[in-house]
Design a protein around this nucleic acid. Structure first.
Length: 144
RNA sequence: AAGGCAGUCUGAUCUAUCGACUCACGGAAGUGAGUAGGAAAGUCCGGGCAACACAGGGCGUCGCACUUCCUAACUGGAAGGGAUUUUGGGCAACCAAAGUUACAGAAAGUGUCACAGAAACUAAACCGCCUCUUCGGGGGUAAGGGUGAAAAAGUGGGGUAAGAGCCCACUCAUUUUGAUGUGAAUCAAAAUUGGGAUAAACCUUGCGAGUUGAAAGACCAAAUAAACCUGGAUCAAAGGGCGGCUCGCCCAAUUAUCUUCGGAUAAGCCAGAAGGGUAGGUCGAUUGAGGUAUAUUGCGAAAUAUAUCCUAGAUAAAUGAUAGAUACCACGGCAAAAACUGUGGGCACAGAACCCGGCUUAUAGGGCUGCCUUUUUU
């Protein structure tokens, strides 16, 4: 963490979060996802409301699996922190390819995990997601 | 001193790195300040607020039910009354303390009251008791027996053929009158009034309740269809709106052309059907029946006055994540206490969603108060 890394922004401001109900509904219906229990990431390549933002994300926990709001908040906060620390890898690639994208991180488990367990699983899922994006970029850049 | 139960208060602090939301300043980069609870929960009551509805009456439905007071209001709270439970004291009446209490009406009516029992509600006659007898039985009786959760006021005496509130004394209940109290009631006197329980059974009486619920609602932006089709009225009828139902109440009805002056056609109007679009922002929304302190009034809930403070405001939904430390807790070490030190924990219940007043439920650890148990000392 020195001066040459200062370009990396770990921020997660409002423009980088998914707020549009339409896109969220589309995200659940699109069917594109990568997963490793208990984390699943739905993704969709779509135009976003802000032209200079290429990645919008959201975090979700089922109310049915965690009926207490405290538990849901805890899991969402952990997932959001992990997502916030990792997302720059994906975002840089998307900016290079000029490909906007929406992402939903969904916790499908029934047991609470701590930060480090959660992070190791998230990393595995995220590698899959980046691979999926690379494939899309390859297809998109080769007009047939 | 230890343990348990109940009530009540509290629900810790600091540092670093990376973030989120709101506000202020700034041209910008950014800087500064603030950021979850006692229950934010359950959504059980009540109110504010908003939209719609609202001539009035009847029926129905739902809720509440000792009194007075507090409150914006309440199924809330305070103070009190009655009933009742436990403990202690006392021969007893009773007294004290701590609880519990949906506590209007059973003499308006209906229903239910198993089994047992003769009889369970305009009481009854199995054994018994008394009496008459033509010896078959008839009459009187509600003391005693037996059944039952409960047998028709209870105890004692008189009385009688035997008995019975039939009469008397005391007690209990009911009613009436008087006194005290704002009142629930209490106390006293009189009366023969002595007519089971159950209303968290129907019901009756009294009081209260319009419906919906911030996804309410207002405005702006965006989008669009004033398409097409069907029906209807302008002849007061059909129709539509309102409420749980009924009676009922409310609603609009034009223009042009043609005309044989009856009407016709078209547009507009009303209703329906079908289809399409949008689904983003601002307000509502946090200054309020507000909090805190002091004084006064009141037994108290609370009220009034003055001073002071502004204390989350998100909207796919912020208030965080990670690491470390301290307070603190548990166990161990030093013969004991303190101090010191090692290891582990550093936590429960729980997350605002328009806002208030209550109620209910959950809660690790710690503080305080009360009660109970055990042990030690005096």
């Amino acid at each position: 963490m020195r001066s040459n890394d200062s370009a990396i922004k770990f921020t997660l401001s409002k423009t980088e979060r998914l707020c549009s109900r339409k896109i969220i509904a589309g995200l659940y219906e699109s069917g594109f996802f990568v997963s490793k229990y208990p984390i699943r990431i739905n993704y969709m390549f779509t135009d976003l409301p802000q032209k200079d933002v290429f990645l919008q994300g959201m975090v979700s926990v089922s109310k049915r699996k965690f009926s207490k709001a405290v538990d849901r908040n805890r899991i969402k906060r952990l997932l959001r922190e992990i997502y916030r620390h990792r997302k720059h890898q994906l975002e840089n690639r998307l900016i290079e390819a000029n490909l906007p994208m929406a992402v939903a991180v969904i916790f499908t488990g029934t047991q609470k995990l701590d930060y480090w367990e959660m992070e190791s699983i998230f990393n595995k899922v995220f590698i899959k997601l980046i691979a999926a994006v690379e494939e899309k970029i390859k297809l998109g850049s080769n007009p047939i």
